[in-house]
C-alpha cells in the first residue's frame, strides 16, 4: 500500500436513478500538497466531495484515508478521522455568533456531554475544556482574520467573510485533509489574493488541501496537481502546465468539434 497518499479514491462510482454522476474515478492525493479538481458545471466535483465526507455512499468503489477504508462511514465519523470541508453554497449556522460557529468545529475534539454541562459552573474539568475550545477557536479566527467579528451573527457577515468563516470552522476540527468547495466564489480580486495567502499558510501548517474552484487563475497559481472531471469521468490529471495543454481538457471546456 502506498502510504504517501493521504486520500485515495479507487474506481469511485455513484448513480442517482439512471444518471451516473461520478463514473469510475481514481485519484491519489499526496500528503502536504494542494490538489484541485476542475471541470464544467455538473461534472460531479461536489458529488466527489460529498462521497469523501460521507454525505453520499458510492454505488461502487472505495475511499481510503490514511490507508484506511472510510467508504460509507457517517459524516461525523469521517470528520473525527481528520477530514473537514466547506460548502459550495455557504452553510453556516446563521443565528449563532462567529465564535460559536467555530466552537462547533471543536466539537469532535472535545468531550463534555450533557451531564457535565449541568455541573458546568462548578466543574473545573468542564471549565478547562471550555477555555481550550475558546482559545483554539480564536486561533482559527485570527488565521482567517475574523477575530474582531467574533460576537457578530454569522448571517450578518459579508459574503467573502462568510467563506472565510467556513474555512475557520473547518480548521477548528483539526483536520489533516481540508476540502474547499469553491472557496473563492463571489470574492473580488483582492479578497482572492488574501485567500490564496491564507490557503498557503494552511498548507505550511502541514495540512493537505483538496479544492474545487472555477477561477482558473486561482487554481493554476495555487495547486500542485490538478484533476479534470467531465460528465463524471476523470479526463486528465497532472501539473497545472500539463493540464492546460491537454487537448481533452480544452475540448471539454470549449466544446468538441463535430467531424
Amino acid at each position: 500500500m502506498d502510504m504517501s497518499a493521504l486520500l485515495e479514491l479507487q474506481n469511485v462510482t455513484i448513480r442517482f436513478g439512471g444518471l451516473t454522476a461520478v463514473d469510475g474515478v481514481d485519484m491519489k492525493i499526496d500528503r502536504g500538497t494542494i490538489r484541485a479538481l476542475i471541470g464544467p458545471n455538473g461534472a460531479g466535483k461536489s458529488t466527489i466531495f460529498n462521497i469523501v465526507t460521507g454525505i453520499y455512499s458510492p454505488t461502487a468503489g472505495r475511499v481510503l484515508f490514511n490507508g484506511q477504508e472510510i467508504t460509507g462511514l457517517p459524516p461525523h465519523v469521517i470528520t473525527k478521522k481528520g477530514i473537514a470541508r466547506t460548502f459550495q453554497n455557504i452553510r453556516l449556522f446563521g443565528k449563532m455568533t462567529v465564535l460559536d460557529n467555530v466552537k462547533i468545529g471543536q466539537h469532535c475534539r472535545s468531550s463534555c456531554d450533557f451531564l457535565s454541562a449541568v455541573t458546568g459552573f462548578f466543574n473545573p474539568k468542564v471549565k478547562k475544556e471550555e477555555k481550550e475550545i475558546e482559545e483554539r477557536s480564536l486561533e482559527a479566527l485570527e488565521l482567517m482574520e475574523l477575530a474582531d467579528k467574533r460576537y457578530e451573527y454569522a448571517q450578518s457577515l459579508s459574503y467573502g467573510e462568510q467563506r472565510r468563516l467556513e474555512i475557520a470552522r473547518a480548521l477548528a476540527t483539526k483536520p489533516s485533509l481540508l476540502l474547499l468547495d469553491e472557496p473563492a466564489a463571489g470574492m473580488n480580486p483582492q479578497e482572492k489574493q488574501t485567500l490564496m495567502k491564507m490557503i498557503r499558510k494552511i498548507q505550511d501548517m502541514g495540512l493537505t488541501i483538496f479544492l474545487v474552484e472555477h477561477d482558473m487563475k486561482f487554481v493554476m497559481n495555487l495547486s500542485d496537481r490538478i484533476a479534470v472531471l467531465d460528465y463524471g469521468r476523470k479526463i486528465a490529471a497532472g501539473s497545472p502546465e500539463e493540464v492546460q495543454k491537454n487537448p481533452d481538457v480544452i475540448a471539454a471546456y470549449l466544446g468538441k468539434d463535430v467531424d
Binding site: 449563532m96 460559536d100 462547533i104 472535545s110 456531554d113 454541562a117
Partner: peptide, 20 residues
C-alpha cells in the same frame, strides 16, 4: 455548553452540523 451549542447547530443546519 458544548452540548447545547451542538443542538443549536443542528437547528441551524443539520448537514453542516454533521459535517462538523
Amino acid at each position: 455548553s458544548r452540548f447545547g451549542r451542538a443542538l443549536v447547530a443542528i437547528r441551524e443546519d443539520d448537514i453542516a452540523a454533521e459535517a462538523m
